[in-house]
Amino acid sequence: MDLYAVADFCLIPIGTGEPSVAEYIAECQRVLEKSGLKYKMHGYGTNLEGPWAAVSQAIHDCHAAVHAHGAPRVATDIRIGTRTDREIAPGTGNEGKVRRVEQILEKDAK
Rank of each mutant, 00 (worst) to 15 (best):
residue 1 M to Y: 09
residue 1 M to A: 09
residue 3 L to F: 07
residue 3 L to A: 10
residue 4 Y to C: 00
residue 4 Y to W: 03
residue 5 A to N: 02
residue 5 A to V: 05
residue 7 A to G: 07
residue 8 D to Y: 05
residue 9 F to D: 00
residue 11 L to I: 12
residue 12 I to T: 15
residue 16 T to Y: 02
residue 19 P to D: 03
residue 19 P to K: 04
residue 20 S to T: 05
residue 20 S to H: 13
residue 22 A to T: 04
residue 22 A to H: 09
residue 24 Y to D: 06
residue 24 Y to Q: 06
residue 25 I to V: 15
residue 25 I to N: 09
residue 26 A to Y: 02
residue 27 E to I: 05
residue 27 E to C: 09
residue 28 C to M: 11
residue 29 Q to W: 13
residue 30 R to P: 01
residue 31 V to C: 13
residue 32 L to T: 09
residue 32 L to S: 08
residue 33 E to G: 13
residue 33 E to W: 06
residue 36 G to K: 09
residue 37 L to I: 01
residue 38 K to V: 10
residue 38 K to S: 14
residue 38 K to F: 12
residue 39 Y to P: 00
residue 40 K to S: 14
residue 40 K to W: 08
residue 41 M to I: 07
residue 42 H to W: 10
residue 42 H to I: 15
residue 44 Y to T: 15
residue 44 Y to K: 14
residue 46 T to Y: 01
residue 50 G to L: 02
residue 53 A to E: 14
residue 56 S to P: 01
residue 56 S to H: 07
residue 57 Q to M: 13
residue 58 A to R: 00
residue 61 D to F: 03
residue 62 C to Q: 00
residue 62 C to A: 10
residue 63 H to T: 06
residue 65 A to G: 02
residue 65 A to M: 03
residue 66 V to T: 12
residue 67 H to W: 15
residue 68 A to T: 12
residue 69 H to A: 14
residue 69 H to S: 08
residue 70 G to P: 00
residue 72 P to T: 03
residue 72 P to V: 02
residue 73 R to D: 09
residue 75 A to H: 09
residue 76 T to P: 11
residue 77 D to R: 13
residue 77 D to V: 03
residue 77 D to E: 07
residue 78 I to F: 00
residue 81 G to Y: 00
residue 81 G to S: 09
residue 82 T to Q: 13
residue 82 T to M: 12
residue 82 T to L: 10
residue 83 R to Q: 13
residue 83 R to W: 04
residue 83 R to L: 10
residue 84 T to N: 09
residue 89 A to P: 02
residue 89 A to W: 06
residue 89 A to E: 11
residue 90 P to I: 03
residue 92 T to C: 11
residue 93 G to H: 03
residue 95 E to P: 01
residue 96 G to P: 00
residue 96 G to A: 06
residue 97 K to H: 08
residue 97 K to V: 14
residue 100 R to V: 11
residue 101 V to E: 12
residue 102 E to I: 07
residue 102 E to C: 01
residue 103 Q to W: 06
residue 104 I to V: 15
residue 105 L to R: 15
residue 107 K to C: 06
residue 108 D to E: 11
residue 108 D to H: 14
residue 110 K to N: 05
residue 110 K to G: 08
